[in-house]
Structures are given as C-alpha cells and as structure tokens.
Amino acid sequence: MDKTTLDLWVGFFVAIGIAALMALAMKVGNLTSNTLGETYSVTANYENIGGLKARAPIKSSGVVVGRIDNIKFDTKTYQAVVTLRIDKRYSFPKDTFANIYTSGLLGEQYISLEAGGDDNFLKEGDRISKTQDAVVLEKLISQFLFNKASEASNK
C-alpha cells in the first residue's frame, strides 16, 4: 500500500480514537460540569452519617455545588468527620446548615447546604457546626412503635 494512504488511515484511526474518548468524557462522563474547578474544603461532624459515601454530591436548593472528599472517624469525639469540597464560585455563610438527606425513598444520600444569615463566609479549613444526621429508618420505626405503645398504655 502507498505510504501516504497508510499514514492517512492511521491518522484517521488515531483521530477518531481521541474523538471517541473526548465524546465519552464530555457527553457520557460530563467532564465539563462534573469536575469542579477551583474548590475550597470545609469539614462537618456528624453523629451518624448513615450511608453517605465519598464523592457523593453536595447540593444547595437541589443544585450540585460540590462533592464529598473523604469521610473519617474521629476517635476523640467518636464522630464522623466529613470533608466537603465546594466550588469556589459558591460561598456560604458561617452558620450554614449541612444536613444529610436521601434522594428519593431508596436513593443515594447527599449533603444539603441551607444558607444561614451570618455576614461572614466559610473559608478553606472551616468547620460547619450546624449539622443534622442522616435519618436511620430503624430508629424512626422504633420511636414510632414506642410512642404507640405508650399511648396504648395511657388509655
């Protein structure tokens, strides 16, 4: 085969390979909005994180504003320490609530940020003090049963 035709075919092959990878990254993996640009990280402590996982989304008003970086266990306070990476474009007041919610009945768990009214904003390395634990279904059910039982005994 002619050398230039061969080069052309190989060039074409490599080009569509790279194009396929780009298309996968953009269209399938949504690289453009999934990877955060500049971020800052803050921590939050929880008594119970339920099924929260690293890389789970952080949402505010339903919009993804960051991702969970890592989750550690602090043996001094016996609490879970969650590191949140939030996009630099979004700043939140110091008294922001960080609550763990579940999307749908059986969906994944995420952290929802609800802005407070403080004038100072969260900075790199800050700790969010106002947190709300994940809802544990067994606890709810046992509470409900306990209440029912005490109602019945009061009658």
């Binding site: 399938v28 993996g29 949504n30 690289l31 909005s33 999934n34 990877t35 890389r55 989304p57 993804v64």
Partner: peptide
C-alpha cells in the same frame, strides 16, 4: 448517565 459516571473513576 452524566450524574452517575465519573471521569476519573
């Protein structure tokens, strides 16, 4: 698809 697929992972 977009929200569940990670580029790196």
């Amino acid at each position: 698809m977009n929200s569940n697929i990670d580029f790196r992972f």
